[in-house]
Amino acid sequence: MKQLVILSGKGGTGKTSVAAAFAHLLSLQNTPSKTVFADADVDAANLELVLSPSVISKEEFWGGSIAEIDSDDCTSCGICAEVCRFDAVIVKEDLYTVDPIACDGCAACVYQCPEEAISMKEQLAGEWYQSESLYGPLFHANLIPAQENSGKLVTLVKQQARLLALDEAKDLVLVDGPPGIGCPVISAASGADLALIVAEPTASGVHDMHRVLKTTAHFDVESLICINKADIYPEGTEAIEKFCQNEGIRVVGKIPFDLAVTESMVQGKPVTAYQADSPASLAIHDLWKEVMDVIQDLGA
């Protein structure tokens, strides 16, 4: 079983559109599908909007704990505020409380409070779901806005997808990743056999593509590049191709700007299912074949 993660660095380059089209194409190849899908962008989970999932099970996600001060036992000695490095202890007229948004959950105050007046309280941070989508099993989640621990929820969603893939002897776990290079991206890329990076030929897109490539290299995950909206700025596309050639990174596809991509999103469908012969669909089909060839050639 292999794990493919779709990343981009910059947001909005088309990760989810590519992931959804892959889901559709994979299901055409094998019925029932031999792939399990995981939406690892728990801040902005959009894969569910185009895979028509029906939820089979829904579970609460209890994220990290945060500190809570029992005002009855608190003597206002101030040690908690002294030891807290996250400016999370609020003092108002000798009343000590914890700002739940600032608290990192490190529990340093819990162990240092001489009155044992502080305890850790688990936080409900979101929900995760197992669904049956049109194209196979989908694991997805919603982080409660402004909650911490999106990385932990990403890890959980992926783990569930992976367990099902093992149980049902599936070939592939396809992970739709979040933007950026920090905590949730590291969680999404952990344990991946291959990363497909959806780049955009814009000044910002190229800048962020460099950063995400360095990140996958840091974690020893092999990466392929595809260039989305490749025709909006051909000079940018050429620059990406030249860079990749120098670095020995394969560019496995170029997807043209195509309004059918947005139209399909409005219809709640992958673009390849909405209009199989649109320019973007044809390009994604070729891209998909290239990526699958690479996955098949990967060692155990």
Binding site: D43, I101, P145, Q147, S150, P178, P184, V266
Partner: peptide
């Protein structure tokens, strides 16, 4: 601000007087 709805976003927005939310007119 960075994209998303979790800790880095919260840290960026804390203390602001006003927030402009930028979006595109699509289901996503």
């Amino acid at each position: 601000s960075p994209p998303g709805a979790s800790c880095p976003v919260v840290e960026s927005l804390r203390g602001a007087d006003y927030i402009i939310l930028v979006t595109e007119p699509t289901p996503f």
